[in-house]
Amino acid sequence: MYSPIQQAQNKDEAAALRREAGLWLKEKREALGMSQREMAVKVGIEYYTFISQIEAGRGRVPADRYEAYAAALNVPPREFTLTMLSYNEPAIYRLLQMEDKAVSGASVAPVQEKSSLTALERRLAALESLMKG
Rank of each mutant, 00 (worst) to 15 (best):
Y2N: 15
Y2K: 11
Y2E: 15
I5G: 00
I5W: 07
Q6M: 12
Q7E: 11
Q7Y: 02
Q7W: 00
Q9L: 13
Q9C: 06
K11I: 02
D12Y: 05
E13S: 12
E13P: 02
A14Y: 07
A14L: 08
A15K: 12
A15E: 15
A16K: 07
A16I: 03
A16E: 14
A16W: 01
R18T: 05
R18E: 06
E20D: 12
G22V: 02
G22E: 00
L25T: 00
L25K: 03
L25F: 13
L25V: 03
K26Y: 13
K26E: 07
K28N: 13
R29I: 04
E30Y: 10
A31I: 04
G33E: 09
G33L: 00
M34R: 10
Q36S: 11
Q36G: 15
Q36F: 06
Q36R: 12
E38P: 02
E38S: 11
E38A: 06
M39P: 01
A40G: 14
V41A: 11
V41Q: 09
K42F: 05
V43P: 06
V43E: 05
V43S: 10
V43F: 06
G44E: 03
E46Y: 07
Y47T: 13
Y48M: 08
Y48Q: 09
T49A: 14
I51Y: 04
S52V: 07
S52P: 04
Q53A: 13
E55Y: 11
A56Q: 13
G57F: 05
G57S: 09
R58D: 12
R58A: 08
V61M: 05
A63W: 02
D64F: 13
D64N: 12
Y66L: 07
Y66R: 00
E67V: 14
E67N: 14
E67D: 10
A68H: 02
A68I: 02
Y69I: 00
A70P: 03
A70I: 07
A70N: 12
A71C: 07
N74P: 01
N74E: 15
N74G: 15
V75S: 04
P76S: 09
P77L: 00
R78K: 04
R78W: 08
E79G: 03
F80V: 02
T81L: 03
L82A: 06
M84E: 08
L85T: 09
P90T: 05
Y93S: 07
R94E: 09
R94W: 02
M98C: 12
M98Y: 13
E99Q: 14
E99D: 15
D100Q: 15
K101N: 08
V103M: 14
S104P: 06
S104V: 06
S104H: 05
S104M: 11
S104A: 06
S107E: 15
A109V: 00
A109E: 12
P110G: 03
E113A: 15
E113W: 01
K114N: 03
S115W: 04
S115M: 10
L117V: 08
L117I: 03
T118G: 06
A119L: 14
L120G: 03
E121R: 09
E121L: 14
R123W: 02
L124E: 04
A126Y: 12
A126V: 01
L127W: 10
E128A: 12
E128I: 11
L130G: 05
M131N: 10
M131A: 14
M131P: 10
K132I: 07
K132R: 14
